[in-house]
Amino acid sequence: MLLDKDQFQKKLAKLQNLPAFPSILDRFNDMVKDPSISMSQIGDVIGQDQMLSLKILKLINSAFYGFPGRISTITHALVLLGYDVVKGLILSATVFEEMSNDWRELWKHSLGVSKACGLICEKLRIPDAEEIAMAGLLHDIGKVVLILEEPAIYEKVQMGAAKHDLPIDLAEQKLLGFDHTEVALWLCDRWHLPQRLGVPMAYHHHPENSKSPQMHSVVVFLADNITKAVGAGAEVNSKVMPMPAIVTEMLNINRAFLEQLVIDLERELQTISA
């Protein structure tokens, strides 16, 4: 194995500084100066950055505030933390010096999945849209942390996946002994993030095995694959996975729905890359 599981878990436990993207920080700084900007507008901007979102959810679910594992959306976190705390948290975020291509692809993919979750929930009138969209934004956080903490090793994993034409999670399992969904679960446990985020993050490849809330996992699975289908996969060789029966059963969707979803998502994603 390229990584020792226990060692890596220990490393995660010490993970303190989650870097944020400079573009988000710049926008936030501008917003802070403008008194007419509302909390929900700030929430929208934060909701585009995995690391900032994670930081905020980590803080509000920490034992210090006294309701661990309860808060799963940025809107709720902003209400409970308050403007000053969020401001401090964001201003103290470390900035990425440069964004590598890996990063950019992964960020675009995550944001795409988050938007796709929102679209699916809206079209099918599924409740908890913001929560599911957050799970979508964070679903690949395990990859993010792996790239962040073990860049050289993870590059080998990505190369191995490309060379043998393997899905990334299988390559991770072969070469690391665990995959990025497990890493996401460790983080969720460690930081007392709600199950309602952790479950879809952990089961986004296999919603058929998902614990409750299974609907969350189903939506994130579909969103992940639709996003890959429109060419915004996390990796160059990202593959659309075969759809388990549970997805069409629980969502009660047909081919026409999926085709329309692709069109709508493409339109949404154009505004992101701009």
Partner: peptide, 18 residues
């Protein structure tokens, strides 16, 4: 129940501080 108390306290604090 205690969590609800703390949550309510935060909501009020932030509304007033805002």
């Amino acid at each position: 129940g205690d969590e609800i108390i703390r949550m309510t306290a935060r909501i009020m604090t932030n509304a007033v501080r805002g």
